[in-house]
């Protein structure tokens, strides 16, 4: 077994365990922390794939900002009691299992199908994940989708301000 596979296996294993932990823990703070670990390790997998910018954005945005907000809210509400969080038994878990299995099958198909093909899959250039290349691609080939995404984000920000603003008088 080569080193690459071992490193990937270790990181993927931690990520999977953390992902299971997110749904398995009763304590919301622990679930959130498992999610943090998952995001963090995922970033390392991106690094290993030479996608530096994607990896660091993962840490910066998800681990550093979004999860901090999550924890902040959880602590602010102080959701301590696990009993209050136990879900009622209804059809939702069954639906979740079906959809989850479907998603897993889809992803497995996407991963396994190219592997079974006879010819080698195309390889990305070694420096495809550098900020320079991503920036150039975003602002030339994908300028329109990029700008549309930024407009979407702007709408989100304005919406958040509108929702959060108190009406005076």
């Amino acid at each position: 077994m080569d080193t690459n596979l071992m490193v990937f296996g270790a990181m993927a294993g931690i990520a999977c365990l953390a992902a299971i932990g997110v749904v398995a823990f009763n304590n919301p703070v622990r679930s959130a922390l498992c999610l943090v670990v998952n995001f963090f390790v995922l970033a390392f997998i991106y690094f290993a794939l030479n996608a530096q910018l994607l990896g660091i954005t993962q840490i910066l945005v998800y681990t550093g900002a979004i999860m901090v907000l999550f924890l902040f809210v959880i602590m602010l509400l102080n959701l301590g009691a696990p009993q209050a969080l136990m879900e009622k038994r209804d059809s939702k878990p069954l639906l979740g299992v079906v959809v989850g299995a479907g998603l897993a099958g889809l992803i497995a198909f996407q991963v396994l199908y190219p592997m079974m093909a006879t010819q080698a899959p195309p390889r990305a250039a070694n420096d495809f994940g550098t900020p320079e290349n991503i920036g150039r691609t975003l602002f030339t080939t994908y300028a329109l989708p990029f700008e549309l995404a930024s407009v979407l984000l702007l709408v989100g920000i304005v919406g958040a301000i509108l929702l959060a603003k108190r009406r005076i008088g």
Partner: peptide, 23 residues
């Protein structure tokens, strides 16, 4: 290639120790 972003990302992790200790 992501030097300064790395600094930003890691410094944003600094909050976890404090928040966890507090909780």
């Amino acid at each position: 290639d992501i030097g300064i972003l790395y600094v930003m990302a890691i410094s944003s992790l600094g909050v976890y120790g404090v928040v966890l200790a507090g909780y």
